[in-house]
Design a protein around this nucleic acid. Structure first.
Length: 460
RNA sequence: UCCUCAGUAGCUCAGUUGGUUAGAGCAUCUGGCUGUUAACCAGAGGGUCCUAAGUUCGAGUCUUAGCUGAGGAGCCA
């Protein structure tokens, strides 16, 4: 039986059963030994009580922090204060011992930086157990939300041949020799010899393909790995991360904002309803205001302002910013933080950015100088969602592509959807790890993904 | 990529204006304790002071370069 079930089942008392897991701590003396056993099913461990004289001494010696064991025994009410039930051990199996001289996890005091160096073992800590369970619950909640709302899960490609997705540096995918690739007469690499007969990369976004799906199934979403080869060294960036990108036909920018707000709130609500123990643990250990902050998001409407209004607020704030506030220049982190944390003190959605600072596919407004982009800004982590209404007009889209000198020949299929049965449509991208970061209250994105990939780090 | 800070025992850290044999807590090991709660009590072992070069009679400490990590910025989700 799993530890979570035992702890939740009053009827288990008096029954004989088997629990398997890893030892968190061991206490006691020659006569009685207490073990905290955890199998990852819950943040809580179950206490195993061993009457030491009943077992061989060398077996007891193997019961150390980190060892994997199975315990057969009777569940009894615990006379101790800290737990309601415990297992009185009749039989002990050691599946795998853990040499206490060399096992790096101890009973107390590990920095998150140290745990990153032992990412193969950190899932065994309370902290990472909690994070990984919350991460799972949120992934499940995302699929549930979309399924319940008539969206179809679309699998967009991970290898892409278009380098015009416009979201950053890409990782090349190739089977050509790194030391001696075939070359053309001008010395450049001959990608026609490559596996796909052209230069290919890992995707930086499934959006363009997502739009193709939306213009057929009306509502789709993607949820998959995304790769950016930017040399970003921050607590909010990964080279490999998971992104959720809903794309909806017949949604205008306001519908898009409604969805983004309802979606985020439903995910936070799901976590509060289903991950209470883990959230309480993280609140106790790392972030005393975590649950209040999550509840606050649920209880308040996101502020909706245009970029132009944001600029006015910042100019009139009297605040001294390092970067000058000026219409036409993108909002800096310090500006976003001011809006979210000082001015409105709640999530803010900013729309209608100058077209020159946003991607080619965003729908152009009639004013000729702004586009219907939208960013959702959260306290602590900044931009959690970026999205827009898409330009559905063939001529406007085409002229924007040529203005920006993008390779039109690689985008023929994207353009063609505007030629045949085009429709107003919108969508956005949510960084999954940023969501998990916010909901767990952790400070560094490398601690909310099991095996982070960042510049100079692809260990494990 | 830029700026700032850090790197000393398995982990977290202290180490004074450069000066004898580099310390503490936790962990580990040994001993003690029949109900512990990050158990407790006593004792012991444990160091390439990130690497390289330099200054100096003498460097954990100062200088330079590099490596690694963290924070801030940019890019963005």
């Amino acid at each position: 039986m799993r530890v979570k079930e035992i702890l939740q089942s009053p009827e288990a008392i008096g029954k004989s059963l088997e629990a398997k897991g890893w030892i968190r701590t061991k206490r006691g003396n020659k006569n009685i030994v207490f073990i905290a056993l955890n199998d990852g099913s819950t943040i809580h461990s179950i206490q195993v009580v061993i009457n030491a004289p009943d077992f061989p001494e060398d077996l007891i010696r193997q019961l150390t922090t980190g060892a994997c064991i199975g315990i057969k025994g009777i569940v009894v009410q615990s006379p101790g204060k800290e737990q309601s039930v415990e297992i009185q051990a009749d039989d002990i199996t050691v599946y795998g011992s853990a040499n206490p001289e060399t096992y790096p996890l101890q009973k107390k005091g590990h920095s998150l930086e140290f745990l990153r160096e032992i990412a193969h073992l950190r899932p065994r800590t309370n902290t990472f157990g909690a994070i990984l369970r919350i991460r799972h619950a949120l992934a499940f909640a995302i699929h549930k939300y979309f399924n319940d709302n008539g969206f179809y899960y679309l699998h967009t490609p991970i290898i892409t041949g278009s380098d015009c997705e416009g979201a950053g540096e890409m990782f090349r995918v190739t089977t050509l020799s790194a030391s001696n690739p075939p070359v053309l007469k001008d010395g450049k690499v001959d990608f026609s010899e490559d596996f796909f007969g052209k230069e290919t990369s890992l995707t930086v976004s499934g959006q363009l393909e997502g739009e193709l799906g939306a213009l057929a199934l009306s509502r789709v979403y993607t949820f998959g790995p995304t790769f950016r080869a930017e040399n970003s060294n921050t607590p909010r960036h990964l080279a490999e991360f998971w992104m959720i990108e809903p794309e909806m036909a017949f949604y205008e920018i306001d519908d898009n904002m409604d969805l983004a707000e309802d979606f985020l709130k439903s995910l936070i609500r799901y976590a509060l309803d289903h991950c209470r123990d883990d959230l309480e643990f993280l609140q106790k250990m790392y972030d005393g205001e975590l649950i209040d902050r999550l509840t606050f998001i649920l209880d308040n409407t996101f502020e909706r302002i245009t970029y132009t209004e944001a600029i006015d607020i910042l100019v009139q704030s009297g605040e001294k910013f390092e970067f000058q506030v000026k219409w036409g220049v993108d909002l800096q982190t310090e500006h976003e933080r001011y809006l979210v944390e000082k001015h409105y003190k709640k999530p803010v959605m900013v729309t209608d950015y100058p077209k020159d600072i946003k991607a080619f596919y965003m729908k152009q407004n009639d004013d000729g100088r702004t586009v219907r982009g939208m960013d959702v800004l959260f306290p602590k982590i900044g931009e959690i969602i970026g999205g827009s209404q898409r330009e559905e007009n063939y001529d406007k889209l085409k002229s924007r592509i040529s203005e920006l000198k993008l390779p039109e020949k690689d985008l023929w299929w994207y353009l063609e959807t505007r030629l045949f049965g085009t429709a107003p449509h919108s969508g956005f991208g949510l960084g999954f790890e940023r969501l998990v970061l916010f909901i767990t209250g952790m400070g560094n994105i490398r601690d909310v993904i099991p095996f982070p990939r960042t510049p100079k780090n692809a260990e494990f």
